[in-house]
Amino acid sequence: MKWVGRTIIILLAAMIVVAAAFAFSRSDLAAQLLPGGSGRGEFARGEFPEGVRPELPDEGGFPDRHEGEFRPDGREGGSFRWFSTLKNLGIIGVIVLIVVVLQWTWGYLRRKIRFGQARQSSQA
């Protein structure tokens, strides 16, 4: 029973987010913030911003980067298949590294300052 209640609380919190997203998609703000959107969660005819319309070739006449490499189920063929996953893992790794280094530096500086203060007070 305890778990059911907690699950309902989590689902209610999620429903609030969903309702907010739905309200946002219907607002004028969405149309202003997201170029090309009609403001009703739809992409009205003729509203495609430049370069977004999938069937049009780009200005240079080059084919889409992945053209011909996708299988019918949406999977990518060739050596590109794992690239995006490795890239995502790399991004997470870099963020972790930055935060850990920042935390270590912060701790080191704090210890240094405290040690300096304690030495000053003991000398006085």
């Binding site: 997203a21 959107g37 009609s38 969660g41 739809e42 992409f43 991004i91 997470i92 972790v96």
Partner: peptide, 20 residues
């Protein structure tokens, strides 16, 4: 809808950053 697609793309990019 275009808005859902854009929101999906933006929020999943943010999710990667937040997961990090």
């Amino acid at each position: 809808g275009f808005i859902w697609r854009t929101l999906h793309s933006l929020s999943s990019d943010a999710a990667l950053f937040l997961l990090g």
